[in-house]
Design a protein around this nucleic acid. Structure first.
Lengths: 162, 162
DNA sequence: GACATTGGTCAGTCTCTCTGACTAATTTGG
DNA sequence: CCAAATTAGTCAGAGAGACTGACCAATGTC
């Protein structure tokens, strides 16, 4: 007779996140972008339009710089990113998105938009707006890379560890 | 010039989820429960009060039964779960929570409650209620284990893959 | 100019996850 | 009631992702 108690807000947040991420990955695979893994995507997602340093990618993705380097190597080999010297610091290099990554991002963004439309249809305009408003506010106290100090939080879904 | 565009709902969902999970893990570690990994926790979390079969755990955690078996082995060795024969099926065994797991769950639940209080304080009562309402509705179209058919969604945070 | 800091790589290890092949108990269909 | 199909779980092997520790090279500091 299962009690069916209120699930914690954590579970409630995770379920739609996961559903969205799955949709995005499925669509990318179907569009031919099947040569990268979730872990690689979570790094690629954080590359800014002007390029981003490895160390910075590592911090934002909450992994070590070694792991980040490992993943960027693979993305580079698969043709999703380039490494260019950083003009302002001889030690550093900037990881930049290649055209292939921009094409993939377009697919990803359109799926995100589609899923958001579905959600809005299910919730209604008003509740969807309330949802985004509450989440945006929540970001102030849960996002270490808080609004107003990082590159660009660009599109797509967060970074689910998988 | 950074554009600071609207982040997708996916990112917005993920950020607080991750923040919550981190808090829970930190608190567990501090309370001495530092001998299990996130992957193990995601399985343990899904064990119902009457015990749950391995296959069922695997489905809910979205991993293969081999992986689930691997993780349960470790949890068993660490004393968090027991395996008991399933009286209704000679092939199956029920994974059951040991006292140690119940104690850890208590810690986890209290941290979740604390974080939710903080969120409510930041958002205000009304917006927090709207948030939970919208998320609960969203669950209808994003949760494959939809409400009204599984064990108990018990406490804590979802299952981030890490 | 010596010294600490920072960006990044190399090497080694451990955990998680998968696929494939297999055993044993149960259910199904004549 | 027995043969075939299904289901619960294990064993074996491989690859990916993550970490720690040690290291080099360019920068910044005093």
């Amino acid at each position: 007779m299962v009690v069916e108690s209120e699930p914690s807000t954590g579970v409630l947040l995770f379920l739609p996140y996961r559903a969205l991420e799955d949709r995005v990955f499925a669509a990318l695979a179907e569009a031919g972008f099947d040569d990268f893994t979730p872990a690689q995507a979570r790094v690629m997602q954080r590359v800014g339009p002007e390029g981003t340093r490895l160390t910075e990618l590592a911090e934002q993705a909450q992994i070590t710089k070694q792991t980040a380097g490992f993943l960027v190597d693979q993305l580079e080999r698969a043709g999703y990113v380039r490494r260019e010297p950083d003009p302002t610091d001889g030690r550093a290099r900037l990881v930049c998105l290649a055209d292939k990554a921009l094409a993939a991002k377009e697919v990803a963004d359109s799926v995100v938009a589609e899923v958001e439309r579905e959600w809005e249809e299910h919730l209604g305009r008003r509740r969807m707006k309330q949802l985004r408003e509450a989440l945006t506010l929540l970001r102030e106290i849960t996002d270490p890379w808080g609004p107003g100090q990082q590159e660009t939080p660009s599109g797509q879904a967060g970074g689910g560890s998988a």
